[in-house]
């Protein structure tokens, strides 16, 4: 009996393919893309100012709201943070990725990779929470700052307009540190993967042709690592763009996109505005992904 069924399917490979493909595709198309579509639709609805009910009629009014000054500032602030976090992450990630890919022995390499990936998968929320402890006014970082007599320097930093705040745990500087920390593994892995693919012979060839180590690094290693950096930046940029936990936990009253969306739909009950606001990150990310694909970043993921 099973033989018969097996033979039936064996002789129809296309049917088998369809059977394999249908459940996951159905799920992703209906649930995921369907939801994204409903998000898009909702962004063209608006909210009745009196009743607070959603008016299900096509309008561009909600989008117009996004371009008011407050919201523009939110988008700009978020994008700027995402950009700076991405750049700093790339700078911090590179030495470790380079070391793992090109210098560590195979055994050490395995352990280092595990040491990098375990934080990547482990609780994001708990890791944010850890920084709340570290950055607290009475916490460990302040203690060290006191120990090294750097209190004045910290006060000066927190006094800076725009990025300062009452304490590290309630300022853009604090948020910046936590963003950099949280997304760092997402940058290390793709760079490491890209560097791993640079054959050792290529480096030897370069030095054989008379390049000094610094030249080899600049002309061979950096360009070849670049797709990895781009791949990593997809995550660091995108994740920063949409995050609302870190701004809510460590930020001040100045909103970020994720935070704004969260409060528009939650306390404000304005789903259309929240939907329209999310379209910002979606558009930015789609453009980003298209550029990244051009730059060959998808091979490095």
């Amino acid at each position: 009996m099973l033989n018969r069924i097996s033979t039936y399917f064996y002789q129809r490979p296309k049917l088998v393919l369809a059977l394999f493909l249908t459940p996951p595709m159905l799920y992703m198309l209906v649930v995921y893309l369907g939801s994204l579509f409903s998000l898009l639709i909702n962004s063209f609805y608006s909210i009745d100012d009196f009743t607070g009910m959603i008016v299900r009629e096509f309008t561009m009014r909600t989008y117009a709201q996004i371009f008011n000054i407050a919201n523009r500032e939110i988008v700009f602030r978020t994008a700027a943070m995402a950009l700076v976090v991405t750049i700093v992450d790339a700078l911090i990630a590179f030495p470790l990725a380079y070391y793992i890919a090109k210098f560590a022995s195979p055994r050490l390499r395995t352990w280092l990779l595990i040491a990098v990936t375990v934080p990547l998968w482990s609780s994001y929320l708990v890791r944010v929470y850890a920084w709340k402890l570290i950055l607290a006014k009475e916490g460990i970082l302040s203690w060290f700052i006191h120990l090294f007599n750097l209190t004045d320097a910290l006060d000066w930093l927190l006094g800076l307009p725009g990025i300062g705040g009452s304490s590290l745990s309630l300022s853009p500087i604090g948020m910046f540190i936590v963003f950099v920390y949280i997304w760092l593994p997402y940058m290390i892995i793709p760079i490491q993967t890209a560097l791993e693919r640079v054959p050792g012979s290529l480096l030897e060839a370069s030095s054989d042709l008379g390049a000094r180590p610094s030249q080899t690094f600049r002309t061979v290693i950096l360009p070849l690592a670049f797709p990895g950096v781009v791949a990593g930046s997809i995550f660091t940029f995108s994740l920063t763009l949409g995050d609302f936990i870190i701004p809510l936990t460590l930020g001040n009253s100045k909103f970020f996109i994720g935070q704004a969306v969260y409060s528009y739909q939650g306390t404000g009950g304005n789903v259309p505005l929240a939907a329209a606001m999310t379209m910002g990150p979606v558009v930015i990310m789609v453009l980003y992904l298209l550029i990244a694909r051009r730059l060959g970043a998808f091979d490095a993921i």
């Binding site: 994204l36 409903s38 949409g242 969306v261 990150p281 979606v282």
Partner: peptide, 24 residues
């Protein structure tokens, strides 16, 4: 690409999208 999308797009997009679908 389609399977990667939910982790490549910010989580909040997936979240609010599902929220509007559930609500709708």
């Amino acid at each position: 690409f389609l399977l990667l999308l939910p982790i490549a797009l910010p989580g909040i997009v997936t979240g609010i999208a599902l929220r509007t679908a559930i609500g709708g």
